[in-house]
């Protein structure tokens, strides 16, 4: 599915809600599809029909993609705690708890990625 008012303009997105702004995943998802359009024109009808019938294209690993972003966002939460406590990084009990939860979330996402991609 391409909109084209200029040569670099395509539309291909799946979204989930994070932090008030919809997470963008098109490069991770759309590039293989676009390549297939170019390299294997016979696949075009199939891909278009997939996209007509579902929000998610067939040729990708949604779980792993979501896990990568969720992991990165949890790491960002840890980064924010580092900023708030610089330079000594003496964490309060609440901050320790937040960090622990974020670390657990990152671990969980790594498990999903291993399971889905490896």
């Amino acid at each position: 599915m391409c909109y084209s008012h200029c040569e670099h303009h395509t539309v291909n997105h799946i979204h989930c809600q994070v932090g008030g702004v919809v997470t963008r995943l098109p490069a991770e998802q759309s590039t293989p599809v676009q390549f297939r359009y170019l390299a294997f024109p016979f696949l075009e009808n199939r891909i278009v029909s997939v996209r007509k019938n579902a929000d998610t294209p067939l040729l990708m690993s949604q779980k792993a993609i979501d896990a990568v972003f969720t992991g990165l966002f949890s790491m960002t939460d840890i980064r924010v705690i580092l900023r708030k406590t610089a330079p000594l990084h003496h964490l309060s009990d609440e901050q320790k708890e937040q960090t622990k939860k974020a670390v657990e979330m990152v671990r969980k996402q790594l498990g999903i990625i291993e399971g889905d991609l490896l």
């Binding site: 932090g19 008030g20 702004v21 963008r24 972003f69 990165l72 966002f73 960002t76 939460d77 980064r79």
Partner: peptide, 12 residues
Amino acid sequence: PEAMKAVISWGD
């Protein structure tokens, strides 16, 4: 934090 996450996702 919200902007940091958005930038990760929308930096292209």
